[in-house]
Design a protein around this nucleic acid. Structure first.
Length: 273
DNA sequence: ATGCCTATTATTAATAGA
């Protein structure tokens, strides 16, 4: 089973890129972020024609998240993150696909920091971690997937010293991410590639893609039972080079249908220490 | 310290992204 995340940066403007990648990669489940589309303009017909059922939580101009499932309709279990009723940003949607609870998130960017946007990011992160702890207590497989807007370590930034005061890399944000992992979640991509520089985003500015000046901010977190099924995790880098590309590339994991034992399980356990 | 590039929305400029 292949589960992916892709910050499309405009689901309508990037529809050709999305459809091309869906046809090439054939993921079973896809979490999308930054739809930049109101609900009524979500391209459900085109996505359905490509073979995917969809659940979405849109918003005019900004934000917006969706979950696609190949050949089936996702069973939506939540739209919006609990804990702050006044928060109207569409940044979380959740659905069950093939017995797996899929939480699709778009964490606030938080810049400039310090400031009200950074305060909102920290509050959102706290709410998310609190809710994630509830999900961890459920006796079901869970994957928390999306654009976390956090580079977890220096290995996830092309030039760490340039980013120390940025909302995506400030110590309190990295600490929040580590506390989240400590609940028992496995960062799938980092677990499968413990020592590599891996990026999932390249700015449109300064020829960042051409210079490979990237950031790793799109993450797939797996509950312990799913981590035991993890056999591969990769970035589809070439998608960043497509015409009219998003500034993010898709990230995906491959899970076996039954639990594995041995090296992969050991690696998953090690990553949570 | 700021713009760079790209998108959306609303009228050729502002806002947001990361």
């Amino acid at each position: 089973m292949k589960i992916a995340t892709f910050n499309v940066n405009g689901v309508n403007g990037r529809l050709p890129v999305l459809l091309r990648w869906l046809a090439e990669a054939e993921p079973d489940v896809v979490c999308l972020q930054e739809l930049k589309s109101p609900n009524e303009k979500f391209p459900n017909a085109a996505i359905g024609k490509a073979g995917y059922g969809a659940a979405w939580h849109g918003q005019k101009s900004w934000n917006g998240v969706a979950i696609l499932a190949r050949g089936v309709e996702p069973i939506t279990t939540r739209r919006g993150l609990p804990g702050e009723p006044a928060d109207l940003h569409s940044r979380y949607i959740e659905a069950v696909v093939d017995g797996i609870l899929i939480g699709c998130l778009y964490m606030p960017n938080g810049n400039p920091a310090p400031g009200p946007k950074f305060d909102y990011k920290l509050r959102w992160f706290t709410r998310f971690a609190s809710y994630a702890a509830e999900l961890m207590e459920l006796d079901v497989p869970v994957a928390l997937i999306g654009d976390f807007n956090v580079m977890p370590t220096e290995l996830d930034v092309y030039k760490p010293e340039r980013w120390v005061d940025d909302a995506l890399f400030r110590p309190e944000v990295r600490a929040s991410y580590q506390r989240l992992l400590a609940q028992g979640w496995t960062d799938a991509l980092r677990t499968m590639h413990p020592a590599e520089r891996i990026y999932t985003f390249w700015d449109y500015f300064r020829n960042a893609w051409g210079r490979d000046a990237g950031l790793r901010i799109d993450h797939i977190l797996l509950s312990p039972d799913l981590a035991r099924r993890l056999v591969a995790a990769e970035v589809d880098r070439e998608v960043r080079g497509y015409a009219k590309a998003s500034d993010h590339a898709p990230v995906w994991v491959e899970l076996t249908t039954t639990a594995r034992s041995g090296a992969v399980q050991g690696a998953a356990r090690t990553s949570r220490v």
